[in-house]
Design a protein around this nucleic acid. Structure first.
Length: 331
DNA sequence: AACCTTAACAACCGCAAAGCC
DNA sequence: CGGCTTTGCGGTTGTTAAGGT
């Protein structure tokens, strides 16, 4: 789904038409010199003038564009337009690839919301691109996490904070998604490197040592549907695959093995052993050991403190796992 | 067809760092 | 060194298309 492309409004060329329907925030105002400062969507003519200016003077002295009467835009606005839309070699109108997504996830975990810094690792992407991508993704994950929680029971009427409404550890977002989807739905699909929840693309689980920690530190959420899919799972040399059309992975899903849930509820079985993690803490150790989210300057929390950041009643909503499907041959 | 929701994108604002005089 | 200007960054909001109901 491509977003709005009113910008450049070159298609209609209606000068000021977008401003007229814009909010007051984007209406122009008049500065001391009497020149009305234009705001809002850029027109193709303005872009041409700006590009011509940069060709002659280089990407600097943005304020002089207005002082010279070339454009009724602030220097700030001119710079932003150049950086985000007019600069050569920008990947405009092209969605983030799984590999780009993986890079953003890795670097966001490493650097935090340093979008400009992250963008330097992504040729053709701007800090605004990365920021918007991240924001959209966060909303998607938050929505999926919320929708994965079963309805409240009558004895649990107290308000449950939205998943995204509190400060979560760097990888808690992932763990919440993981936990909630694991427990609650039968429509979660791992197809290739993509994880789908309710037939919606949720995230990439590209075969990378870093992608959310899921690729290597976690077992697959569900068994891959086919042998072909199996080949694309972590620890293979297959490159990341783009998410396939949704129609291709709708269907009955295999149930996870029963002891799968022991990773969350038992004290004996532990990811850290089974999946090669270091450390001796029980479940959820994988969130820190070997995870790209483990920062150099951060120590893993004590096992008991890991969930302290969560609302205490969060897991009240988790229902026990469904009984194992009847097997024809008991072994 | 109308309305609603979601995703993607564009562009604004405030603030701070860097540069200049 | 201090003040002013410019540049860059991150947060936020607004707009629109597409898809769903």
């Amino acid at each position: 789904m491509q977003g709005a492309k009113p910008a450049t409004s070159s298609s209609n060329g209606s000068v000021g038409s977008s401003s007229s329907r814009s909010s007051g925030r984007r209406s122009g105002r008049r500065d001391e010199g009497g020149m009305a400062i234009r705001k809002g969507t850029w027109m193709a003519e303005e872009d041409e003038i700006l590009m011509e200016y940069v060709r002659k003077h280089g990407p600097r002295d943005w304020s002089s564009i207005r002082s010279k009467g070339l454009l009724a835009r602030t220097g700030k606005s001119c710079r932003l337009r150049w950086v985000n839309k007019l600069k050569p070699d920008l990947k405009t109108g092209c969605k983030f690839s799984p590999e780009e997504e993986r890079i953003v996830l890795d670097l966001q975990a490493k650097f935090g919301n340093k979008w400009a810094r992250i963008a330097t690792y992504l040729p053709g992407r701007t800090d605004n691109d990365v920021k918007n991508f991240w924001s959209t993704r966060q909303k998607r994950l938050a929505r999926i996490s919320r929708s994965s929680l079963p309805p409240r029971s009558s004895k649990n009427e107290k308000e449950l904070p939205a998943v995204s409404s509190y400060e979560a550890p760097p990888n808690m977002e992932v763990s919440l998604l993981y936990i909630t989807t694991l427990f609650s739905r039968s429509s979660n699909v791992q197809c290739g490197n993509a994880l789908y929840v309710d037939n919606q693309y949720a995230m990439s689980i590209a075969p990378s040592p870093c992608n959310l920690g899921l690729g290597t530190a976690l077992p697959p959420l569900l068994e891959p549907a086919t042998e072909e899919e199996l080949l694309r799972l972590p620890n293979t040399s297959m490159p990341p695959q783009p998410p396939p059309p949704q129609q291709q992975h709708i269907g009955p899903l295999p149930q996870p093995p029963l002891d799968y849930l022991d990773h969350f509820t038992g004290e004996e079985i532990c990811f850290s052993e089974e999946f090669g993690c270091q450390g001796s803490s029980p479940c959820m150790q994988f969130l820190y050991d070997g995870s790209p989210f483990a920062r150099e300057d951060e120590q893993p929390p004590a096992p008991d403190s890991l969930f302290d950041d969560l609302p205490s009643d969060l897991f009240d909503y988790l229902e026990p796992p469904p009984p194992p499907p009847p097997t024809s041959s008991a072994s």
